[in-house]
């Protein structure tokens, strides 16, 4: 017991491989930002479909949300990485490949677009109808109304409340290591295999993620609190 404890506290291994581990962490952040961009864009699109006037478009939006919100991250990553390129290749009659990084970003982006779509939709529906009527009475078209009146309010209101989704997304970026994207977790597993010392490495990795999520989470929440105080 005390031997294992001493080994856990031995951060020498972590220091020895600091370069490769930091590069891995950078990959986590790159996947995070890429997937967040995809998720926000696709999520907004799906939300607009869900509040559309046309029933068909609404149905498409609903199906999108229900599929991706209920899909496990890992299953979606594996599907996008191994199945989607084949389907696209068959459609285009060419060989099509996605590198692991692109697959990871796309899959996580799609999964989290389902969550963002719901957040955006609640935000759109929360805009008082008086604002819409005022806009219409000034002669604004539906599109202009959406961009000028509705969306600015939605973004201000919903981004602070999306913090939990962003945090889940960041935690999910570790899963891309399973399709060989060289993120922190992938590098930790590789070093473990080479050094045969899982204790300090896995414990260290857990603590690194813990620290990042805790610090970033509380910082974002503090900022959001201020932001919300300003708009309401």
């Amino acid at each position: 017991m005390s031997d294992s404890l001493r080994e856990i506290l031995d951060i020498g291994v972590f220091w020895e491989f600091r370069n490769i581990l930091l590069r891995g962490l950078l990959v986590n952040f790159l996947v995070f930002f890429g997937a967040a961009a995809v998720a926000l864009g696709v999520g907004l699109g799906a939300a607009l479909l869900r509040v559309s006037r046309f029933r068909v478009l609404r149905a498409v939006g609903t199906v999108h949300v229900e599929i991706f919100r209920n899909a496990p991250d890992y299953v979606m990553i594996v599907w996008v990485h191994f199945v989607l390129p084949l389907l696209i290749g068959t459609l285009l009659h060419t060989r099509f490949e996605l590198n692991p990084f692109a697959s990871g970003v796309l899959a996580l982006g799609l999964v989290y677009s389902g969550y963002f779509a719901e957040t955006f939709r609640t935000g759109i529906e929360a805009v008082p109808s008086g604002h819409l009527e005022a806009g219409r009475s000034l002669g604004m078209g539906e599109t202009l109304l959406m961009w000028r009146i509705v969306l600015p309010q939605v973004v201000r209101r919903m981004l602070p409340e999306s913090i939990n989704i962003f945090i889940s997304l960041f935690k999910a970026t570790t899963i891309v290591s399973l399709i060989a994207v060289p993120d922190l977790m992938y590098n930790v597993s590789m070093i473990t295999q080479q050094e045969m010392r899982p204790l300090p490495l896995y414990t260290g990795a857990a603590l690194v993620y813990f620290a990042i999520v805790l610090v970033a989470g509380s910082a974002l929440r503090a900022v959001a609190e201020r932001w919300r105080a300003k708009i309401t």
């Binding site: 570790t174 857990a206 813990f210």
Partner: peptide, 23 residues
């Protein structure tokens, strides 16, 4: 509670699997 909530599940899974048995 904070540690359990803030660590990614994959990290936790590997951590429990490799570290707990020795600890």
């Amino acid at each position: 509670i904070e540690f359990f909530r803030a660590t990614p599940i994959l990290v936790q899974l590997l951590w429990v699997n490799y570290v707990w048995p020795e600890l």
